[in-house]
Design a protein around this nucleic acid. Structure first.
Length: 572
DNA sequence: GCCGTTTTCGGCCCGACTGTTTTCAGTCG
């Protein structure tokens, strides 16, 4: 069993224990362990084999036993038993807003409600209002929650959330009394999918309620979930929820930090504060009654003996320790990108011509570009036959003469066939300067088959990099099973690069794998996978995810200068 | 269930909002 599955089960154990009314600290230790395992740099199997699980902070005697059992046998007796002890539907009830484990336990104990369907029925029969702790309002809220869930259970991709966030910010930023306004939450941390949009405002005293009213009354508000003096929650017509917090000028840095999260990062931060005998919350950093003044987040981190931690890194996966040792990476920025690979032209399924793409890339200031169309097996995408490859190469040579300011590399996105072979013979592959190998078909594979298929492709000397390594489509298609660590180790062994596909539907390699790639010395290439000129701007999402994965410019292939790149690829 | 150089027992992050409550519990982030 791999770490993702282990983490999921630990998380589920935490939820079940919560529903059973167990000690909340015990519950937390399972949630914590799930997160730690999920973000593990090392191979979980190795840790188990070498009996080193307990070296991990947060994993003790009991948890290491259970994790060992899960990894070795794929099962956990404790979990199986626990799972049988409550109805399955209770877990799903946890996803209804305003309904948590305590109330669900009451509903189960008193009314024997075991799933959402029954709950909906009991609400409509007005059976909840008789229960202690429930009333007319909470019953109605639960019913609304069920309807709401049916309509909007999804998370949202970065671009959608970002568009709505800009709408909110632009409507509020010029209001009287707004001193500072900023996005917080997972959007600021650049998580690949977003549940809601968090906005923090520093406001002049006395202007708070007007700002709140404006926010709750925005044209695109479909529903006001909560409307308080310092905090309100709305849902926009797009189905995306948003929270606004209004604080004073002095509180702003602390509030911004607090609401940026992640939750796990905040918990770690408060522990650090405690080491200094301080108390940290969203209003300040306190020594007794006295606030330690900070003008911005940077000063806040410094007050706790830490380097400033960029929001992308705040996931409690080692950033605090690194900041303590002044050892945070200097993260890559969009301006570091000097060229792009993996663009589709109208030779395959893109809409623009080679020349249009080259002109735009030159406008963007790139030193090199590689259009990588689909290979012949990709019938669905008008993949290039051998003859059309040669035709395209001829056109590229002509364009290279016409546009000497930008180096045009002959590239291809070659399908990795089910047997691990690339989609052309070696003599044709040798004519390319960039070969991206990607899996597009026969996605149903076991973990072993997937690794074997990709490793075989990596053994091909003409392959430059592996494209979108897990094939996932965010919120739409699960990744095929692939042991990312073993994959990265193989890339290191065979000297291959790994694509970080910057399309916001993919963002694959996942940021959680970037850190390990860096540790293994594997270069990551941030590729737009553009099918139009507009798609070129997706590169920025790739940069953001690379930052989240702790990558510096030196860890990225396409931050290289043209001459460095030529050396790297053994080209002229 | 985890953790520890004041501790192997007794802590474990903190506060707003809501609803059902006469002082608080549950949920959420």
């Amino acid at each position: 069993m791999n770490k993702k599955e282990v983490a999921r089960i630990l998380e589920e154990i935490g939820q079940i224990l919560e529903l059973k009314g167990e000690n909340p600290f015990k519950v937390r230790s399972y949630y914590n362990a799930a997160r730690v395992i999920m973000n593990l740099d090392e191979n979980l199997n190795d840790l188990v084999e070498e009996d080193r699980l307990q070296d991990i902070k947060g994993i003790g005697d009991a948890l290491s036993q259970k994790i060992k059992e899960l990894v070795e046998t794929g099962k956990s007796g404790y979990y199986e038993k626990l799972k049988c002890s409550i109805p399955k539907g209770l877990m799903e009830m946890l996803t209804i807003p305003s309904l948590g484990p305590r109330k669900i336990k009451i509903l189960y104990d008193k009314l024997n409600i075991t799933n959402i369907g029954e709950l909906e029925y009991f609400c409509k029969e007005n059976r909840l209002i008789a229960l202690e702790g429930f009333g007319v309002k909470s019953q109605r809220k639960i019913l609304e929650g069920i309807q709401f869930k049916k309509k909007y259970e999804k998370r949202h991709l970065l671009p959608a959330a970002e568009g709505d966030a800009h709408y909110i910010i632009s409507e509020l930023e010029n209001l009287d009394g707004v001193i500072r306004i900023k996005l917080a939450g997972s959007l600021r941390r650049r998580l690949e999918t977003i549940k809601d949009i968090d906005v923090i405002i520093a406001a002049e005293s006395g202007k708070e309620s007007l700002i709140m009213e404006k926010y709750c009354g925005l044209k695109r508000v479909e529903k006001v979930v909560a409307h308080g003096e310092t905090k309100s929650s709305i849902v926009l017509d797009s189905g995306i929820a948003s929270d606004l917090r209004v604080v004073s000028r002095q509180e702003y840095p602390y509030a911004l930090h607090y609401f940026t999260g992640s939750k796990a990062h905040n918990i770690e931060m408060r522990k650090v504060a405690k080491e200094f005998q301080y108390k940290l919350n969203e209003y300040g950093l306190f020594k007794g009654e006295e606030n330690i003044p900070c003008n911005d987040e940077e000063e806040l981190y410094n007050s706790l003996g830490l380097q400033f931690i960029p929001p992308e890194l705040r996931e409690a996966i080692g950033e605090i320790e690194a900041a303590r040792e002044n050892n945070l990476p200097s993260l890559v920025e969009l301006k570091d990108i000097r060229g792009v690979f993996h663009i589709h032209s109208n030779y395959s399924d893109g809409i623009n011509s080679l020349e249009e793409i080259i002109i735009r890339c030159q406008e963007l200031g790139y030193e090199y570009v590689s259009v990588c169309d689909h290979s012949k097996s990709a019938n669905y995408a008008n993949g290039l036959s051998e003859a059309r490859v040669l035709q395209q190469h001829q056109e590229i040579e002509g364009l290279q003469e016409k546009y000497p300011g930008i180096r045009i590399l002959k590239g291809i996105e070659a399908d990795i066939l089910p047997d691990g072979c690339l989609d052309y013979n070696d003599s044709l592959l040798a004519k390319f300067e960039i070969v991206i190998g990607s899996i597009h078909s026969r996605l149903k594979m076991t973990e072993e088959e997937a690794l074997e298929r990709i490793v075989k492709a990596m053994k091909n000397p003409y392959l430059t990099m592996i494209g979108h390594p897990t094939g996932r489509l965010l919120l739409a298609r699960e990744p095929y099973p692939l042991d990312i660590n073993k994959f990265i180790e193989a890339a290191a062994k065979y000297g291959k690069m790994i694509e970080l596909n910057a399309n916001p539907h993919r963002l694959d390699l996942d940021w959680r794998g970037c850190k390990y790639a860096r540790e293994c010395g594997v270069l990551v290439s941030i590729n737009p996978d553009a099918h139009s000129l507009e798609g070129l701007s997706d590169t920025r999402y790739g940069v953001e995810i690379a930052r989240k994965g702790w990558l510096t410019p030196r860890d990225i292939m396409n931050t290289r200068t043209k001459s460095e790149l030529m050396t790297l690829l053994n080209l002229e």
